[in-house]
């Protein structure tokens, strides 16, 4: 089942085409990384899904419910954690969660066990009556996440959920997100921490200038575009052999990580010619480098 399905989405602002006909699907249970440079269209796409932006063309469905025609049903499936804090200034921490559940049609008496569980989970249980303005940045971030989960949504949309939090909390949040994803929640994550996306996400979609430029399983993307390689320096110049992703350059041989890794065959080939290896160097690539290469103008 598709958790989110976007078809041919266009969104324009006066003088700017923010989204230029994008299409992609997020499968139920997927941990989906949505990447792009600033202004690429990530938040606009998310806003189209959750109902904060009106799109001129295209179609978005959440678990088969059209976000325009069946918006009441579609929204019940979604929990959103926005980039900016947007808490109601008149509510205490516990009330933020209770009122949020109320807006989703859940009565206070029915949601209280969940509220207590989330406050405990996010280490806010001692702060339930406190005004949110008195919370630290990390606590506010945890409250945002708790609020997005209070109505038990099937899809969680997280826009920069770890922005401005310390390393310890980031690791805690990563572990928690992995756990709830394993338990069945579909997660759409945007983040400027590419290592975070690489570590957490099964699928990665990259948007640039309103267009999708990559959308595939994280492993496939890394395999396909990985520029990491092993550099072998030999005492003599080797004869060339016809192998994918192997480059001979005088007494330097580059064996690229992407595709089938041919290191074993290269060593066998060198041994056959009685060529000695003087030095070996591994050059790693990362999703961050791939991202920069794909999105650079």
């Amino acid at each position: 089942m598709k958790a989110i399905s976007i078809k041919n989405l266009y969104k324009s602002y006066p003088g700017v085409d923010a989204i230029k006909g994008i299409s992609f699907d997020i499968e139920e249970g997927d941990f989906f990384g949505f990447l792009g440079p600033n202004g690429a269209g990530k938040t606009t796409t998310i806003n189209c899904i959750i109902g904060l932006a009106q799109f001129s063309q295209g179609n978005i469905e959440v678990f088969g419910k059209d976000v325009k025609k069946d918006y009441m049903e579609a929204r019940k499936f979604i929990g959103t954690s926005p980039q900016e804090y947007n808490f109601d200034p008149y509510l205490s921490i516990a009330d933020v969660l209770i009122y949020q559940a109320g807006y989703y049609g859940i009565k206070k008496k029915d949601v209280m066990p969940k509220v207590e569980e989330l406050l405990k989970q996010f280490k806010l249980d001692g702060k339930s009556e406190v005004d949110f303005r008195k919370l630290s940045g990390g606590m506010k971030r945890r409250l945002t996440l708790a609020r997005s989960l209070v109505h038990d949504p099937k899809v969680l949309i997280l826009d920069e959920p770890t922005a401005g939090v310390d390393v310890e909390l980031r690791i805690e949040l990563h572990n928690y997100l992995k756990k709830i994803n394993k338990d069945g929640k579909t997660i759409l994550l945007t983040s400027h921490y590419i290592d975070e996306v690489e570590k957490l996400c099964d699928t990665i979609c990259i948007i640039n200038e309103g267009k999708i430029i990559a959308n595939e399983k994280t492993k496939n993307l890394l395999d396909r575009l990985d520029d990491g390689h092993t550099e072998i320096i030999t005492d003599k110049v080797s004869k060339k052999i016809d192998l994918d992703c192997v480059e001979f350059n005088k007494n330097k041989i580059l064996v690229w990580n992407r595709g089938k890794h041919h290191l074993k065959e290269v060593f066998a080939h060198l041994q056959k010619q009685n060529i000695k290896v003087i030095d070996i160097k591994t050059v790693k690539d990362s999703l961050q480098n791939i991202f920069l290469r794909l999105t650079k103008k």
Binding site: L52, P82, N86, D88
Partner: peptide, 14 residues
């Protein structure tokens, strides 16, 4: 002004 209206706009409220 402080964006908490978004809580209502993304909720299943007509």
């Amino acid at each position: 002004f402080i964006n908490y209206i978004q809580e209502l706009l993304v909720a299943p409220l007509s």
